[in-house]
């Protein structure tokens, strides 16, 4: 694993940076801070970032992880970029619904569907 992308797998695909979580649990605050910094670096590396964050492996996440995602979303918007989330399992999707963050983020069922929506 690339040490700069601790806990993440980052791949470039059709002009989109696809980010996959390696861990099942996104809970540890120090780890979440690193993840936020790693994704932030991807955003900063592009004049108009296009990001897909794929949650396929994620079974648990904390409100601190939601906070890191909100910060990423704000950075992407500031650069007039695009952020999509995908492959969120139903229990985690419920967390997004309860917090109403399903209205803040653009969420797709699969990575393929999400990839088709980048402008």
């Amino acid at each position: 694993m690339n040490p700069a992308s601790h806990g993440l797998k980052i791949t470039e695909q059709d002009g989109v940076s696809r980010i996959d979580f390696v861990e099942r649990n996104i809970l540890d605050e120090a780890n979440i801070q690193q993840i936020g910094e790693s994704i932030g670096a991807v955003v900063d590396a592009s004049p108009r970032p296009r990001l897909l964050i794929c949650f396929e492996n994620v079974e648990h996440l904390s409100s601190a992880a939601l906070g890191a995602l909100i910060t990423v979303n704000t950075k992407v918007k500031a650069r007039d970029g695009q952020l999509r989330l995908s492959n969120i399992r139903p229990q985690i999707l419920e967390v997004f619904r309860i917090t109403r963050l399903d209205r803040l983020f653009v969420i797709h069922g699969t990575a393929e569907e999400a990839m088709d929506t980048f402008g």
């Binding site: 409100s63 939601l66 890191a68 909100i70 979303n73 967390v95 309860i98 917090t99």
Partner: peptide, 21 residues
């Protein structure tokens, strides 16, 4: 209340509401 429109982009303050939910 973190679910208010004006607070949706604040990155903290969701723990208590999740516990209540």
């Amino acid at each position: 209340d973190p679910t208010e429109d004006a607070n949706l982009e604040i990155p903290s303050g969701r723990g208590i509401m999740l516990m209540r939910a």
